[in-house]
Write a protein that binds this DNA or RNA. Structure first.
Length: 454
RNA sequence: GAGAGAGUAGCUCAGUCGGUUAGAGCACCAGGUUGUGGCCCUGGGGGCCGGGGGUUCAAUUCCCCUCUCUCUCCCCA
């Protein structure tokens, strides 16, 4: 409405700035590491899809489809929607490219932005980021347990130790339909005790009534029949197998008979991982089995599948709450410091040469004082400074200063690259010698130095 | 979508019961060292007091609208 002179990012979207992106890189890198460990392979699908994919997959009566999708008509008159979640797209791509044709089980993961038009608050943005994993083509309860274990391994890799795992089962379509009749019968009897919204839900999505946070509804439905008591034999066996697999590995979990997911495609196993440090938006991961999804979006054959989606922003918040700081300054090995214009030009060339040799370095682009240039070198935690002014140009040498020890030496221009590489090697050796034990395995803080390549 | 709170320097925040040039700390720049970092001292730059409208002699301050953020409901990752 208001015509601001300067535009800003739109409501519910955020810029990730230097100082934050480094931590995201670390987190994403650790996620990829764990995915590799479990042999899941990445899939990247478009951020927008045919609206029907989500309408049919997620469900017409869900909040997501009803009121939260970014939908628009493109110039060809097609209805397009920015993806509000990842699973439907992955299954669509799996069907489209016949990834199951080899008869193998496919294990896929994805990572990227999702879009939902909700009221923004902490841990909930309109563009947010999820990563997720999917196993397609198998009913095996091991797949259910594996995706849960996979996510918990990610938390472990990140150092997040406080979480709780909640699991439930929605049964298959057959047993849920039978149960639904029972439930509607029960709810009809207590209808006047329910909140307005729930009275509507009795007709549209009765299972959600059990998940209502309203005190009155909770009390009124306390004695409602439980879905878990009405699973058919196969679904019960499957659910028990999943629990046994988790239990055998000492993974703590709570069975939540009322857990209902907000997406219609779930069947059988559902689960959530909650973080105690997040406030209202405390789910960092949600998932489950979706054996009917492939057919809901037009696939000919039944393709069983199970997976999860996890919110990266919420994980970042949980890390922060846990006091885990993954930020690091990008490595700067050499700062080039000039006095005067001639030296400035000379150093620009030397900087280029050093970079070609794989040395991370920077030159001064403002004409600030030597003091300011040194201060910045210090701020960047540069290891070496190369200083040049009239004196050096005349003598055809450069001053090389070790910024850790303060030692200085004069180096001939022709020897700069070899000497710098030599000194950096020496400093690295010294640093390894002094490094405390706990840091010796892998030093995440220093980031990937371009210098290592050479 | 509903309710509540908040927006003042790059950042974290004071402040004005409406009244001249709006402050601190950190950060930045410069000087103290005719060319050398971290500590210290001195000085400096930087603000349409979120935006628009209204009341008033006078609005950063009061009122309304709007935008954004935060919290809650809801929903979800």
């Amino acid at each position: 409405m208001t015509e601001n002179r300067s535009l800003q990012s739109i409501r519910g979207t955020h810029d990730l700035l230097p100082g934050e992106t480094e931590a995201w890189d670390v987190v994403e890198g650790l996620i990829r590491d764990v995915m590799g460990l479990y042999q899941y392979r990445e899939i990247r699908t478009p951020v927008f899809e045919d609206t029907q994919l989500f309408a049919r997959g997620i469900g017409e009566h869900t909040d997501i489809v009803n009121k939260e999708m970014y939908t628009f008509t493109d110039q060809g008159g097609r209805s397009i929607t920015l993806r509000p979640e990842g699973t439907a797209s992955v299954v669509r791509a799996w069907l489209q490219h016949r990834l199951g044709a080899q008869g193998t089980v496919d294990k896929l993961y994805y990572m990227g932005p999702m879009f939902r038009q909700e009221a923004p608050q902490k841990g909930r943005a309109r563009q947010f980021h999820q990563f997720g994993a999917e196993v397609l083509g198998t009913d095996a309860p091991e797949a259910d347990a594996e995706v849960i274990m996979l996510f918990l391994s990610v938390l472990d890799a990140l150092g997040l130790e406080t979480w709780s795992l909640h699991i439930g089962s929605l049964g298959c379509r057959e047993c849920r339909a039978e149960y639904r009749v029972l439930l509607v019968e029960f709810l009809s009897g207590i209808e006047d005790l329910l909140c307005e919204e729930c009275r509507e839900r009795v007709g549209t999505n009765p299972l959600r009534v059990l998940d209502c946070k309203n005190e009155g509804c909770r009390l009124a439905t306390a004695k409602a029949p439980s879905l878990l008591d009405h699973l058919d034999d196969e679904c019960r066996a499957h659910f028990e197998a999943v629990q046994a697999l988790l239990g055998d590995r000492g993974i703590p979990f709570t069975v939540d008979p009322r857990m209902v997911r907000g997406l219609d495609y779930y069947e059988r196993t559902t689960f959530e991982v909650l973080s105690p440090d997040l406030g209202a938006q405390d789910a960092i991961c949600g998932g489950g089995r979706y054996d009917g999804l492939a057919q809901m979006i037009g696939g000919k054959d039944r393709v069983p599948g199970v997976g999860f989606a996890a919110g990266i922003e919420r994980i970042m918040l949980a890390l922060e709450a846990a006091g885990i700081d993954l930020d690091f300054e990008p490595l700067c090995e050499v700062a080039l410091i000039h006095i005067g214009d001639a030296a400035r030009q000379r150093l620009f060339t030397i900087c280029d040469t050093l970079r070609r040799a794989g040395v991370a370095c920077t030159t001064e682009l403002f004409d600030r004082s030597v003091k300011a240039q040194m201060r910045e070198a210090n701020r960047r935690e540069a290891l070496l400074a190369l200083i040049a002014g009239e004196k050096e140009l005349e003598a055809d040498t450069i001053t090389l200063r070790n910024l850790v020890s303060g030692d200085e030496e004069q180096v001939a221009f022709t020897d700069i690259v070899t000497t710098v590489l030599e000194r950096l090697d020496q400093m690295e050796e010294e640093a390894v010698d002094e490094e405390p034990d706990e840091w010796t395995d892998e030093d995440e803080q220093s980031g990937p130095g371009p210098g290592e390549a050479a």
